[in-house]
Simulated scan of single mutants.
Amino acid sequence: VPFGGDPDPDALWRLDMFYTAVALAIEERSGVSTSPIIGMKPVGASGGWAFCRDVHRFGFETFRKLAEAGTKLVDDATAAIEA
Rank of each mutant, 00 (worst) to 15 (best):
V1K: 07
P2H: 03
F3P: 01
F3H: 06
F3S: 03
G5H: 09
P7S: 06
P9D: 04
P9V: 12
D10R: 09
D10Y: 09
D10Q: 15
D10S: 13
A11H: 10
L12Y: 05
L12V: 11
W13S: 11
W13L: 12
W13D: 08
R14T: 03
R14P: 00
L15F: 15
L15S: 12
D16N: 08
Y19F: 14
T20Y: 07
A21P: 03
A23L: 07
E27G: 15
G31F: 12
S33F: 04
S35I: 02
P36Q: 15
P36G: 00
I37P: 01
I38E: 07
G39K: 05
K41D: 06
P42D: 11
A45G: 07
A45C: 03
G48K: 11
G48E: 15
G48T: 07
G48Q: 11
W49H: 15
A50M: 07
A50P: 03
C52E: 10
R53E: 02
D54H: 04
V55R: 06
H56Y: 14
H56W: 12
F58G: 10
G59E: 08
F60Q: 02
F60S: 10
F63H: 08
F63S: 05
R64V: 14
T71H: 00
L73G: 00
L73C: 00
V74C: 02
D75A: 04
D75F: 01
D76A: 13
T78R: 05
T78K: 06
A79M: 02
I81W: 12
A83W: 00
A83P: 02
